[in-house]
């Protein structure tokens, strides 16, 4: 998909309001001085998203929350190509996994030789609610330019025991405390109106 202006895509469970975000790989070409923003709540199916920052001062801001349950095995691949200098990208990916679900996450940032003064950041975090759920995260930075700012990070773990205890110590029962913490963790990167989808998932799976 080629875009001509600033565009914001929001999608729940693979369906974006601006366009259909199916299981087919999707390519977004962002022209100069434009910004691509995406909020994605992923529950099932693969996502392959390729963003090409195709002009100076092109930007992208990608936020993906994934909720995996049962025996679902999914993969999310996000590739950002800084085709021009002075481009910037940010990816924040947050997941919650339960049961025997598995997520394979590949996050790629490519910055060719001539693309100086680029900013590329990627952060992936996942919370495992069961011992049998798993995440395989592979961040990949392919950077040929020498004057860029880049970072990536990935952390996988359980809910923070001290956070949980703080809620318990105020009389909030364990199940409710978990839901409050997990919901705030994903809602931090999603539009407020999607709260209902997250609630539904929490009620069934937490």
């Amino acid at each position: 998909m080629k875009i001509t202006n600033n565009i914001s895509l929001t999608g729940y469970n693979g369906v974006l309001t601006e366009t259909v975000f199916g299981t087919e790989p999707m390519e977004i070409v962002v022209p100069e001085n434009s910004e691509f923003t995406a909020h994605i709540l992923h529950i099932s199916g693969p996502i392959t998203l390729r963003v090409i920052l195709n002009g100076e001062y092109a930007k992208c801001d990608i936020k993906i929350a994934y909720l995996s349950n049962k025996n679902n095995h999914n993969n999310i691949k996000v590739e950002v190509i800084h085709q021009y200098k002075n481009t910037a990208s940010s990816q924040v990916i947050k997941g919650i996994l339960t049961d025997t679900s598995k997520m394979v996450f590949d996050g790629i940032i490519r910055i060719p030789f001539d693309s100086q003064k680029c900013d590329g950041h990627q952060n992936h975090r996942a919370i495992l609610l069961s011992d049998t759920a798993s995440v395989q995260a592979t961040p990949e930075l392919e950077i040929y330019a020498d004057d860029v700012k880049c970072s990536h990070g990935s952390a996988v773990g359980a809910l923070d025991e001290n956070h949980l205890f703080y809620l318990l110590s105020r009389g909030i029962p364990m199940d409710e405390a978990k839901k409050i913490l997990l919901k705030s963790y994903v809602m931090e990167i999603l539009p407020e109106t999607w709260e209902q989808y997250v609630d539904e998932w929490m009620d069934e799976n937490v």
Partner: peptide, 24 residues
Amino acid sequence: MRADERANSGVFLAFQYPTELPGV
């Protein structure tokens, strides 16, 4: 009793280092 039951029975701990809960 569980921690939440203790709290609801009337025990309160004001923490030395209160926890930050982003988004809550």
